[in-house]
Structure formats: C-alpha cells, structure tokens
Amino acid sequence: MLDNFNFRIIFEYLPLFLNGLKFTFLISLVALFLALITGIIACACRISSIKVLKYPVIAYIEIIRSTPLLVQIYFLYFGLPTLGIRVPEIQTGIIALMLNSGAYIAEIIRAGINSVDQGQIEAGLSSGLNYVQRMRFIILPQALGVTVPPLLGQAIVLVKDTSLLSLISVVELTRSGQTMTSERFMPSEAFLTVAFFYMCIYFCLKALADWSQRKLIFREAY
C-alpha cells in the first residue's frame, strides 16, 4: 500500500499542514485555558449552597453532557448571529470548546474535592478553620493530586475535538487535510499526515500525564 503513497506531495503541502498544526495548537491552548477557568468557576458554583448559583450550573453541565459537541458548535455558529453577536468562526469555535470542556472539567474538579475524606473536613471544622482555610490547606492540596491525570485526559480530548471546527471552516489541522484533498484528490496521504500530527500532540500530553501519575503515586506512598 505504501508503494502507492505519494510522499512527495506531503512535503509539497507541508507548510499548509504546519500552519494547520499551529492553529490546532493555539486553539487548543486558548480553549483549554478558558475551559479551566470556566471549570473552576462552575465547580465553585456547583458545590456552593447558594441555589441561584448552583442550579443554573447544574443545568449547564447537564446540557453540555447530554448533547453532542458538533450540535453545540453549530448552535453557537448559527445561533450567535441571530442574537446579533457576530464573531469570527475561530472565536465561535473556541467558545464552544471552552463551554464543552469547562463542563467536564467542573465535574473532574468536583470529583477531586469529593474524594477528600469527610472526616478530615470535620477535623478542620472542629479546630475552627473557616471554609476558605479548609479549602486551601486541606481539600485542594489533596484534590489536586487526583485531578491532574483526568484533566490531562480532558486536554487530549479537547485537542482532538478541535478537528470538528473544520466543519465551520476554521483553519486548523483537519481543515488542512480537507484543503489538500480538494486540490489534489489524495485523501489517504492527506489524512494520514493529519493523523500523524494529532498523534504527536497526543503522545506529548500522554507523557506529561504519565509523569504526573508517577509523581502522584510517589505522593501517596510518601
């Protein structure tokens, strides 16, 4: 099969792919950063006892989790303009990814917080530590440990999800493959190359996840 592959064409189109890779990387980075902030805020609301914060956030998380990302992207892509909000496709895409990953990240952080033994919280309470102090000194340091690996997992998902933005004509890695395919009908070469670059990103993130995992195992065993 490889005999039939035209590698020359891949090199010819390399600048296009590298440009796509650059945008995939940047979009992922910005979306992940915003999703982390969204997730932290959403989680804070989700676990608070204030009903006007808690219930809207529960609704948000459930809506995101129960609908496909592509539908969410299309909803924003076609929906925002009807509300009079006109933003470039790339920003629409980043907002969609931010809202989507933010909901999952909120749940990841919440699981981390819930993993801290209730007894330690009571120990903190009974020595007079207030809510912020219990969070800061008892809950978050321990929650962080269990949260990092799933967060990196979510980062990997987010990078792959950026490929859906090609459907609203955002220039990124998958879009580069589509462009090459439409100019020179060579989809195998195009998408093999695209896949290769996604794999590169994946293995970098996975190495990071494994490294943090080793750190955590070390932490638990002391």
């Binding site: 009974s126 020595s127 007079g128 340091p141």
Partner: peptide, 21 residues
C-alpha cells in the same frame, strides 16, 4: 462565634483524621 467556640474545644475522632499530606 463558632470559630471561637471550636477553638476552645478539642475533638478526637475514632479514625484520627490526620491530614495525610
């Protein structure tokens, strides 16, 4: 003032509940 009150009372649990980190 619960903080003041709790600061005057030590509580020892069956399961110790030390902070493991």
């Amino acid at each position: 003032n619960l903080t003041k009150l709790r600061a005057e009372i030590g509580f020892i649990f069956q399961q110790f509940h030390l902070y493991p980190h």
